[in-house]
Design a protein around this nucleic acid. Sequence first.
DNA 1: CGTCTCGTTAGCTTAGTAAG
DNA 2: CTTACTAAGCTAACGAGACG
Length: 421
Amino acid sequence: MTMHGSSHDYCRMVVFVLRNCGKEMHSSESRSLQLQFLPKISLPVFTGTRIEGEDCNSLKVALVDVLTGEVVYSGPESLAKVEIVVLEGDFDGDEGGNWTLDEFKNNIVREREGKKPLLTGDAFLNLKDGIGLVGEISFTDNSSWTRSRKFRLGARVVDNFDGIRIREATTESFIVRDHRGELYKKHHPPSLPDEVWRLEKIGKDGAFHKRLSREKVYTVKDFLTLLFIDPTGLRNILGAGMSAKMWEVTVDHARTCVLDSRRFFYCPPGSQQKTGVVFTVVGQTEAQNLVIAAFKQWKDVLPFDDEASFWDCSSRLFNNDVYTNSATGETSDGCKNFNPSARMSIYGILRPIVPFNLRLRAWNQSLIYTARCKWLSVGSFSGFCSKCSKEMEEGIQRAEVVLGKEDRGEKKFDRERLRHR
DNA sequence: CGTCTCGTTAGCTTAGTAAG
DNA sequence: CTTACTAAGCTAACGAGACG
């Protein structure tokens, strides 16, 4: 059975015809079929880059029954051959999909004269069970030269099912940019080794980029380090030309940089290891973050009249937990093995504890580092060990942190691992 | 409103590579 | 070695936003 409209007036309601094993099965219900793209196209789109669906999904074309919204899994149409074409971005702007076949054809965009076909790759696909995967296709040219400066993708059925009109699919309109634009894209989030112009408001070879380069701020890491160590100095490098608003945008963008988990520990010479600081690769301290968190969760903050009352209270606070064994009154033998020749890190949580003796041992039980500490950033601690640098080359991968009377087997921190990096 | 700066775009140039 | 093709780099033009 065949339904014909006039050449410009195809009926959108068609009688669905099933053909199976050469037998014709006539459906009494009227059906309106159309192709649909699934899911939306992932933006932005660049020339030479594969067109993909949102969230890294492959782009698909599905044959759908307009009335039920369901995919047509059976029948000859569910195996149709489909062609992907490029359409003008303003095609069917407000029409709600009521285009004719000729209107669709007239809005197909061809390549510019002397250029390669606008789409490269597998422009044809075969539906299977009503769904087909769009293969590897990409644009060869940007969309700036067209009347709307945008493209859409269209999908149309190549086969003729006895003149039955299957409505074509179109995507949302989108801009196709020259792939070279991709080279100068900002990174979200930026990474530490990125050049500093990957940050918002820092133009490549622009005034700010030059000012930063003059002061040897080449990378996002350099920028972040200066931001934490000397924010005023960094602000001065950028100068008055950078407005407060721009500064905020750049700094906010830089702060989204995902830092690695490495931590560094520093005991000033002569401090007898009573004071030390743990910091990130860009000089950000755990304390900074904790204080910020504390001000946000003020109800959880404990007030003390003075430092003495803090220590008095804290020793009682932590008296019954795993840190108790650390307060043994042992004298510290200092950092005699401490040397910035090899770096080690352990991972865990930062918390205040009573003064304790810390010993770091390699897996073969050789003593790497001892110190008397008031604060331990278990899990975010880094040390440098001269003994270890030798042993590391021989294949040592980890050591345990043992606090207090480890010789009696009370290894409270076994689960904390010390790792070479 | 003029100036400064960044962000984007795209034409042109250069470098690299494969084929003959 | 020459030629053809492609990818990458350079740079000018233009628009937008911030600021005085």
